[in-house]
Design a protein around this nucleic acid. Structure first.
Length: 241
DNA sequence: GCATTAACCACCG
DNA sequence: CGGTGGTTAATGC
């Protein structure tokens, strides 16, 4: 037993849910219908895994609703977050292309709806639909840039800056076009993502807010200045009133 | 000393 | 009511 057995009753996507899948717009009607027919949805509760290290790839996955965390485990079992994936984000194409077992874990940080495209459909679309190929290429390229940025960000010790960069990554309009100016993410989610306590995240967020980069709201974050979030550093000086 | 974590309570949905 | 957020107390370094 691996997946689909637990709370994962698969079901067909609704029209609204299809609207959250960005690459469907790249397809012409024939391929579009092929894809829609092949897509299945799965309801994930908090803490549940979409995939674990070593498992074979069966689908290309995307987030319809909720928030996923991609991570590996460190020496002492602590989790090292690679990235967070908001609604509209699709991931694992590299693994799917290479037909390798997963090299990371993917877990739902909150109750989420995850869409899956079977591998054979993924392959067929790559062959038949140029728009789809282009989407996947862009996706790979953008993710490369994202991981380079993440590498930089991790060396910054300052928590506020790390929170800022992680938020900025999740608002990447290329990778996650469905994310508008507000992302439904709690401070605890961010904590799990960045590897900080909720209190520390809270401090970091208020600092970012005082800089006018974000607006902290109940259960969500509103982005006011994405560029500043990406570029600026938010270390301690100049905070006191 | 400091920063991080644990515990608490007030509130929004 | 449970989940979320802000604050305070306790803990570890």
């Amino acid at each position: 037993m691996s997946h689909s057995a637990t709370s994962g009753s698969r079901r067909r996507p609704t029209a609204a849910e299809l609207g959250t899948i960005p690459w469907l717009r790249c397809l012409q009607s024939q391929e579009y219908h092929q894809a829609v027919d092949a897509i299945s949805l799965r309801y994930m509760s908090r803490g549940e895994h979409v995939a674990r290290i070593g498992e074979p790839v069966t689908h290309w996955f995307g987030v319809v609703d909720g928030l996923l965390k991609v991570y590996v485990e460190g020496e002492e079992g602590q989790s090292i977050t690679l990235t967070g994936i908001p609604p509209g984000g699709w991931f694992g194409e590299g693994t799917a292309l290479k037909r390798e077992p997963y090299r990371f874990n993917i877990q739902a940080l909150r109750t989420s709806v995850v869409a899956g495209l079977p591998l054979q459909t993924f392959d067929r679309l790559l062959d038949q639909a140029p728009g789809f190929s282009r989407f996947v290429m862009t996706q790979l390229n953008e993710r490369l840039a994202q991981f380079i940025a993440a590498q930089e960000a991790q060396r910054l010790g300052d928590p506020a800056t790390r929170v800022a960069r992680n938020l900025a990554a999740m608002f990447n309009p290329t990778l996650y076009p469905m994310t508008g100016t507000t992302l439904r993410v709690t401070q605890q989610d961010i904590g799990c993502l960045v590897g900080l306590s909720r209190q520390r995240v809270n401090q970091a967020l208020s600092r970012l807010q005082s800089h006018g980069c974000i607006k902290s709201e109940y259960g969500s974050i509103c982005i006011l200045d994405l560029d500043a979030l990406r570029a600026n550093t938010f270390c301690d000086p100049c905070v006191k009133h």
